[in-house]
């Protein structure tokens, strides 16, 4: 009797496994059609400096449009436009807001650069499996944004250049794009299957690596529900003035349109801890840091 039950159990198990047909998750974007995603995030950053803790809240929202220009085999040429990059930062030192869609005044040089960042388009090559392959016209895009430097007074040029570079450098622009695509599996998957993706992130002078493990939870009505567990680790920096040594985890869920491969909605929560090290005159000052963040992506078009 015991052997019969065991055999039936294994049979049921096998049936249930083979009853789920594998699905192909890949990008299949309609040519010429404008797609738009909005990414809203809230970060709470706690630094400890000289024994005192101070908190910074950063609320940001990025609206990105992309259009498929052409596709050759598995490589898509997508044109991106960062319609709006909005950010509100509250810290003990100061509070400030930026909005790339708001027309900057004559002497608001950083804001003028953000305006241009939101005006010009950049073309990237991405595989149908969501792998970022490179920019086609990054230098032109960069030159267009940096056109504002002609109007910047000499005495402020260095400072403005440094601030613009923090969001304009190639790795920072890549970060804005890659995270919207890097969730596709290499092969067909079925329910409960897991796969991994990795990509680099950069911005504000800091670089890191994200290691994602996705699970296909369910497939309903041509939508795939995925869950993700991510680990983040910062990359050792060559910056002579500052470095970040941080690690953390994130969990989240995504709903993906199986027809196009594009995210419909996504939510995640992150927690990171580590140290920020400031270097000056051969001395080092370590500041412990704790970051809690939540983000949501919704598809607008």
């Amino acid at each position: 009797m015991k052997n019969v039950i065991t055999s039936v159990f294994i049979l049921c198990l096998s049936v249930s496994v083979f009853a789920q047909a594998p699905v192909t998750l890949k990008f299949n974007i309609e040519k010429g059609k404008v797609n738009q995603l909005k990414n809203i995030s809230k970060q709470n950053i706690q630094n400890t400096y000289n024994g005192m803790a101070f908190k910074t809240d950063v609320n940001s929202s990025t609206t990105t449009s992309f259009t498929l220009l052409s596709q050759e085999n598995d490589v898509m040429r997508l044109e991106f436009k960062f319609d709006t990059i909005q950010s509100k930062t509250n810290s003990p030192m100061k509070s400030f807001e930026t909005n790339s869609a708001k027309i900057a005044k004559k002497t608001e040089y950083l804001e003028k650069a953000l305006n241009r960042f939101s005006t010009y388009t950049i073309i990237a090559k991405i595989s149908t499996k969501g792998k970022f392959l490179g920019f086609e016209n990054y230098k032109t895009f960069r030159d267009n944004v940096l056109g504002i430097m002609d109007s910047v007074p000499e005495l402020k040029k260095d400072q403005i250049q440094k601030q613009v570079d923090s969001f304009l450098k190639e790795s920072a622009v890549q970060t804005l794009i890659e995270s919207l695509f890097a969730y596709m599996p290499e092969n067909q998957v079925k329910k409960a299957d897991q796969w991994e993706t990795s990509y680099s992130i950069a911005g504000g002078g800091i670089a890191g690596m994200v290691f994602n493990t996705y699970t296909l939870d369910n497939v309903t009505d041509n939508n795939a529900q995925l869950s993700v567990k991510a680990e983040l680790e910062s990359v050792p920096s060559d910056n002579p003035n500052m470095s970040l040594d941080i690690k953390g985890n994130a969990t989240g869920t995504l709903t993906v349109d199986m027809k196009t491969g594009i995210i419909i909605t996504s939510q995640d929560k992150k927690h990171y801890e580590g140290n920020m090290t400031i270097k000056n005159q051969g001395n080092e000052m370590k500041m412990p840091m704790v970051i809690d963040a939540e983000s949501n992506i919704i598809r607008l078009k």
């Binding site: 950063v58 810290s91 911005g203």
Partner: peptide, 18 residues
Amino acid sequence: QKRTQEQNMEDSGIKLPF
């Protein structure tokens, strides 16, 4: 100098890419 550290953080460290 505290001012230098604050300046460094203000310029690069507060707003993170993730």
